[in-house]
Each structure stands twice: as C-alpha cells, then as structure tokens.
Nucleic acid binder design. Structure first.
Lengths: 350, 350
DNA sequence: CTGAAAGCGCTTACAG
DNA sequence: CTGAAAGCGCTTACAG
C-alpha cells in the first residue's frame, strides 16, 4: 500500500527515534512475549510514539525475518458450490480468532490447477494448508505432507490416513437415508453417486450398499454409474439413466443436493412426480434446500463447524513443535432432515 | 512453509552459486523485464540451476524489497450471502489471471470490524482494495482513497463519486420490476426496502418511486419502512408490516431475493398465497431462485461479471502511475427475469 | 553483460 | 534492561 500517491507508513526505526530508544527496544516493547523485558517507563514512551506516528508492524518484513507469516492457504474446488461458503466462513472465523489470515484458491477440481495453486501459495509463504480437494489416491498431497508441510484435509480425504482430516460420517448418513426410504416402503432404490476418485463418493456408496444389504435388497450395479462431476447436470443425467434402467424405481439417493436437484429434473422430464412417483434424498442440506420445490429431504451436517474444526486442527499443528505429530481424524455427525421430497412408496410402482 | 520438519526451500543465492554466477544475475535472469540483459548462455545455466534446485521466488522477500505484493484485499460483508460467491469468483479469476492473489475478509456489515480488517490487510501489504461494504456516508473509505490507496467499490458505493466503482443499475432494475407489476394490473404495491445507509437501497427505492409516480400511483410512505439488515428475517418482518398496513395489497417489490423469500413467509403466515393473492419480485437472481416455491421473479445482473470488472478496474489503477487518476464508474445492466412469483392482480383484491 | 553493495523493515542472539 | 550487529531473501542503482 505505498503507491505513488499513498502516504508512506511509519517504520519501527522512526518510532524508535521518536521515542529516543533503539529499534530493538521498540520491537521488544511491541511483542507481547518480550514486553516484560522492557522497563515500564520505556514501554510508555514507546507506546506513545507508536500512537503519535500511527505505527503498525509491517507484516511482510516480520514474516521474512521470522519465517512465519500467520497465513494459511485454503484450497477448495469452487466457492460457488453451495457447500463452501459456510465452510469457508467457519474456517476463516476460526483462523481469524487466533490471528491467522487465509489465502483462498480455487481449483475447479483440476489436478494441475491444484498443484499450481499450492505452489503459488507456498511462494507467498503460507504456514500451512487446509485442503478440500483431496482425491482418494493423491500422491501430490501425500508428498506435500511428507515434506513436513502442515496440512489438514477437509470434507474429503485420501486413502491413507497419514494426513489429518475433518470429514463427515458419509457412510452413516447415507445409510440413514436409505433406511428412511425402506421404512417408507421403498424397495427399488437407486444411488446417484459422485465420482469415485472422491472419498465422499466412496463412503456414501458404501453406506448405500450396506443399508440395502441389511434390508435384504439387491442393488443393481448398473443403476450406480458414477458421475464425472458433482453437478446438477450430472445428477440429471444419472437420474435419467436410473429411471430408464429400472422403470419401476421409486426412490433415488443422490450423493449430494446438487445432484438431487438434477434428479428432480430427470423425474419431471420422465413425466413423473416427486415424491408422488419417485422420492429423492440429497446430502449436505445446502442453503435454501428447504425452499426447493419440493423441499428436499437430505443429510445435514455442520458446514460451519467443519471449517471451524479444521482451522483449530491446523493451528494446533502449527503450534506444536513436533516434526510429525500423529494425524488425527475428526468425523462429524450427520442428521437426516426429513422434508417433502420423500414419501411413501407408491403402491403400483413399489 | 518452513516448520521444524519442513524441507527448506532453496534460495536465489544457492541457485547463483550452483550456476556459478552472482545472485544479481539470477535475479535478472528470472525477471522477464530484465531477462534480455543477460547473455543467452548464462541464462541457460541459471535456468538449469533453477530446475536442479527446484527454486521458486520467495514472494515475501520480493515484496519487502519492491514494495509491491501483487496482493489485493477484498472486503465483503459475508461470503454466506448468496450474492457473493459468484462475485468473489469473478473477482479472483480476474485478479488471478494477471498474477494477483486476493486476501478476503468479512465484516458482517460492522463498521468497526471493517476498519480493523482494512488495517490488517494493509499490514499484510496489499497493493489495493476491492470493497463491497461501502455505506452511503462513509468517511473511512473516503479517507482511505484520499490517502492514495487504490480502492474500487463494488455493488455499493458512497455518496461522493470520488472512488471508482462497479455497481448495478439498481434504479432501472427496480423500475422495470414495478412496471411489470403494473402491466399485470397491480395498483397496490409495496416496497420492502433495505437499510438506507446502502446506496443500493436508496437507488432501488428511487426506482420504485419513479415507476409508481409515472403510473400515477400513490406510494404509501408508511409501507416503506426500511429494514435494519438485508436478511430473510427482515424481509418477513417488513412484509408482514406491509400486509397489515394495507390488507388490499397485491404485490411486493423486495430490495433483494433474501428479503423476497421473507415476504413469501409473511404471505403464507397471513393465510395468503403467492402469486394468487400477492405477487413478489426480488433483486439479484441469486443461485437457485429458479428452484424456489414458487420460482422467483427477480431482477438479474451478472454477479461474476461484476467481480471480474472490478478486478480489471483495480489492476488498471494499480498499473497507472498517476497519483490520482479520475474515478471511473461502471454501471451494469439488469434484466427482469419473469418466473412464477408474479401473476395478474387478483380482481377482488386489486 | 555482470558483479559488489546497499537496503527493504523487521527480530534476535550477543554483549554489556 | 538496552544497544549494536547481523541477517531473513530478495532487487536495483552503480560501476566496470
């Protein structure tokens, strides 16, 4: 912030001469950890000078000197995905409360973009990373963590459990969804899944299978073609496919809310109604899911809390001096929120 | 990124000795602007050394030296407000394309928080600001800009036109909304407005008044109590008030989509239906407004484009060496998107 | 075309 | 308790 016209900020050196002390003394006076080393009267003089000159530490200079920037890189697929605003807010509130600032980057789930973003954030000197872009097999992230860089994974995790993470009980949440459908009398249930490179997709599929198996129901493998992306369009495509494969289908469990919305479209397209003919359940409870037509039954978890927890985990890691503390994994609870996209299985179709 | 266990990054000095040249030469070789000063063979050697050592510039050090961080501060009320994800994405894509990184901060529309955030971003050495938090009277921002700091305002602007801005044609958009209602036969129309400290609220109210006046309609001042916040809850409170004041009301123009949603609730609460009894129009065309029940008629503008344009404007400002270039103001077009929350005025109520 | 020097604004052992 | 010195990793006039 010192362009041609900008008023130059005052420096520590200026504060020192204004207060009649050495710059080192000003530095000590201003750092809470060393403040008690300085004489009360000197401290007073320094503080007065700081006030007079409206001095504020140049964090760039401090970072260069201390090798700590109090900055963390946050890497997410896309802030436009309705899952992320709350999550990012939780993250930043958590970081902010302890003096960290976040630099956020978007990857659109493109691995090359991700690498490039991580590299750039490293050049900017971030102290660590929070990543929401993990793939099931992810050598890049494993390497990053192995290098000793502080990393915590969020929402998605890698196959190995070497990197700390905050995730959701994807398996349990989806199992609850299927059970609810079964209680409503549904027997022909399809899963509209996310790309299998994502841990969330795998766990949700597992939960689906487990619940079906436990009810003695067959899951048609063909009715579970995985998506190429977690989008509404893919949800529509897969929903359409599922409806074609099994015209007697009465319910769909989608891997997330966006895909559930796509299923709404596929159902309408087929001349059917939700929940009259086909029930739909999503995952995430994205903002305004209660305002959809029909209001969406979905698996809720605390997006904000997830971000907040990840921030806490990273900060703790940043503070411990251990080279490689053992990775902790936090798994958040889910809660099935029953709204109006699910209903009893229609007698003639079920 | 150099914690206890982290592999230390190589430095320019190391690259230099590896290549057998002076550090200054490496610096010149790596900077596109000075690269042509270095001998082709030397350049090759430097590049090889960079590759061998996996060298990457330490941006912190560079920033300290050059007084440019290629970083910009983005200050918004709350990323959780559905208007912002796309806007921020446009902003960051625009900035990113020209090598800038953004640091984003949230203020929750709290002035003290805003000042504190701006200060912190300044300490982090941002080259300029993009601010979505302007108030109609905003001495803080005026002062910031007057100091010579590069600032561009987005979505909202201040009373003076001293600070460059990218906004929407709030007035015209709202006028179009009212006209549409009038064409549908509505005569008793209320405005559910946002807080008057916001330029958007003022311009939208103006547009409302202008369209009513031009149709020879009276606007009941009492039916336009301004809100304390731009939230769904405030929309509901004000919608309820409007309905109580004029039980014969047949339409509401809300200052934004969130408030329109609140009006849906107020209407339902009163035992009325939308659009059967009361039509509602929002502003913004937030994501999923088309999936609401009923799908919301609203005034659309290009959120992403707004962010992108603001990024371009700031970067241009950062590149010109003028101390105070004249402030440009870009005003984006709006488009009324007619969906199902508006219908003909009901005969008995109209 | 390249090197040597100075310095951006801080912090932190090291003396005293 | 305070000062003087060195240095974090770069860039950029200034010489040559």
């Amino acid at each position: 912030v010192s362009k041609p016209g900008a008023t130059p900020r005052s420096t520590l050196r200026q504060v020192a001469s204004h207060a009649g002390v050495h710059p080192a003394t000003v530095s000590r006076a201003l750092n809470p950890e060393t403040r008690q080393l300085v004489n009360a009267d000197t401290l007073r003089r320094v503080l007065a000078a700081v006030r007079d000159l409206d001095y504020r530490t140049n964090e760039i200079a401090r970072s260069l000197r201390t090798h700590r920037s109090f900055t963390v890189g946050v890497v997410i697929p896309d802030i436009t995905n309705p899952l992320f605003p709350r999550l990012v807010r939780g993250l930043e509130d958590g970081l902010d409360a302890v003096g960290y600032t976040s630099l956020v980057a978007y990857t659109d789930d493109l691995p090359e973009r991700e690498e490039e973003r991580i590299r750039r954030l490293q050049q900017r000197g971030v102290d660590g990373f929070i990543l929401a872009t993990a793939r099931h097999k992810d050598p890049t992230l494993e390497a990053l963590a192995a290098e000793g860089v502080a990393v915590v994974l969020i929402n998605r995790r890698t196959a190995s459990d070497a990197i700390p993470s905050v995730t959701v009980d994807d398996r349990g949440g989806t199992r609850d969804a299927v059970r609810h459908l079964i209680e409503l009398g549904h027997r022909r249930i399809a899963h509209v899944g996310a790309p299998s490179r994502l841990s969330t997709a795998r766990a949700r599929l597992e939960g689906f299978r487990a619940a079906m198996r436990e009810a003695g129901l067959k899951t048609d493998a063909g009715a579970m073609t995985p998506a190429n992306a977690v989008t509404q369009a893919e949800g529509q495509r897969l929903g359409r496919l599922a409806l074609q494969r099994d015209p007697a289908l009465t319910a769909i469990v989608a891997a997330n809310d966006l895909m559930a919305l796509g299923c709404y479209d596929a159902i309408a397209e087929a001349g059917l109604r939700c929940p009259g003919d086909v029930s739909v359940i999503g995952f995430n409870d994205m903002p305004f899911a209660d305002r959809f037509d029909p209001p969406l039954t979905t698996v809720r978890f605390d997006h904000y809390g997830m971000g907040h927890a990840a921030a806490g985990m990273l900060v703790r890691r940043l503070r411990t001096e251990e080279a490689t503390p053992s990775a902790s994994h936090l798994r958040l609870e889910t809660k099935l929120v029953i709204r109006s996209s699910t209903g009893p299985a229609p007698p003639r179709r079920g």
